[in-house]
């Protein structure tokens, strides 16, 4: 635990250093508006990354979260336009996300397909359905009641930030302070030992992939409400930042180590970097490349740390 706290403090220090750097290089950075903007963007990344964190804690992966965001958002938009009912649209979006996650888990648990293959296949299936659903159109203009969850303010703070903090609290509570949450760590550390300790591994995997899918669905709704328009490809750029946020946050791709506090900071770090580039008028075209470099750097660190730890234990 103390090691993890140190790592967390190091990351917070990194965030502060990054902020300092940005504040020096751009006068626009340290404005309330921009800081709220950063947090609002980070909240979107966090919502996706939070569910993904649980999955990665079990030594799994969900590559379909970006596509899931796209389909959930588009389906929500279609339902909203067709029925006019916000409630129905939200339920449709969320359950769409959850069903995608559930399908992932069934392929992984029942067919024993490796998670990265199953969820990668799902990525393209979901993408295909989304494009078919939208058939090249854009759906725009949603009622203010719906838009509130993405672009509304409460007490001067954007609503998505409340969502981020709320789900961070809930997620951290689940991961750290419930039996099921603790079991996820055990599964990630050693699935065989976990099973032989009486932990129902399959049931827990189904749970986390479904939750991960639902969280991606929620992110889709928030994103839709903020953009106020739905297009088939809106989820595409979401996967890399989300994976990067989880790994930068210190959750190990090999499972069993990490948590949501790290992911929260990871989401902020990734967003700060992208925001800083924005402030310095760097073209958005640079974003995928920078995100990938962050991702590869985080995986490299994770791998080296793990190898070092294994070497020390021998």
């Amino acid at each position: 635990m103390s090691g993890q706290n140190t790592a967390l403090l190091a990351r917070i220090g990194f965030v502060l250093a990054l902020c300092l750097l940005l504040a020096i290089s751009s006068s626009a950075f340290l404005t309330t508006n921009n800081l709220l903007n950063v947090l609002r963007q980070a909240s979107l990344v966090f919502l996706i990354a939070s569910g993904l964190t649980l999955v990665i804690l079990t030594a799994g992966i969900d590559l379909s979260v970006g596509a899931n965001v796209g389909l959930s958002a588009c389906l929500c938009a279609v339902v909203l336009k067709a029925s006019g009912s916000i409630l129905l649209a939200v339920v449709a979006g969320l359950s769409c996300g959850a069903v995608i996650g559930l399908a992932n888990s069934l392929f992984i648990v029942l067919l024993a397909i490796p998670p990265f293959i199953a969820t990668y296949g799902m990525l393209w299936i979901v993408n295909g359905i989304t494009y078919k659903l939208m058939s090249g159109t854009t759906i725009e203009g949603f009622p203010p009641g719906f838009r509130f969850i993405g672009s509304g303010y409460w007490l001067g703070i954007p609503v998505p930030i409340y969502l981020m903090l709320g789900f961070f609290a809930a997620g951290a509570l689940f991961a750290r302070h419930t039996r099921h949450g603790r079991e996820l760590f055990a599964i990630g550390a050693n699935p065989v030992a976990a099973r032989l300790s009486g932990i129902p591994v399959r049931a827990r995997l189904i749970l986390v992939y479904t939750v991960c899918g639902a969280m991606a669905g929620l992110a889709g709704l928030v994103y839709l409400a903020r953009l106020n328009s739905a297009e088939a490809d809106i989820g595409d750029p979401m996967l890399l930042p989300a994976v990067a946020a989880v790994l930068v946050g210190g959750t190990s791709l090999f499972g069993g180590l990490g948590g949501l506090s790290g992911t929260l900071i990871g989401a902020v770090i990734v967003t700060l970097v992208l925001n800083g580039m924005n402030l310095m008028s760097v073209s958005t075209n640079w974003q995928p490349m920078i995100t990938s470099i962050i991702l590869l750097g985080a995986v490299l660190t994770d791998t080296l740390v793990r190898r070092h730890a294994e070497g020390a234990a021998k």
């Binding site: 550390a189 065989v192 234990a313």
Partner: peptide, 8 residues
């Protein structure tokens, strides 16, 4: 392999 969560 089967008894412990070695990293925990």
């Amino acid at each position: 392999q089967e008894g412990l969560l070695m990293i925990h």
